[in-house]
Amino acid sequence: MVGEELAIGGPFLDADGMKALGAALAITVTGLASAWAEKEIGTAAIGAMAENEGLFGKGLILTVIPETIVIFGLVVALLINSA
């Protein structure tokens, strides 16, 4: 009955819906992953910087390296949407 109604109204998610969900997942998961990685590296960089200010440049670069993860996520999300 419920199934019949759904079948009449079309699938629960059509192709566009699936695409949107996929893109959202790609961004969410990579965003969380890079946030976690940056937190770990960031605290370590702060620790090193507290002792030696000269490490600011290196610390900054190392801290933003995990940002690539979420950029890949963004790229994948855009590719999914444009396909």
Partner: peptide, 16 residues
């Protein structure tokens, strides 16, 4: 324990 912070800071201290 926040190891990342403590350990890196201590390593920087050790280098001195």
């Amino acid at each position: 324990s926040n190891y990342a912070y403590a350990v890196t800071r201590v390593r920087a201290m050790k280098s001195k």
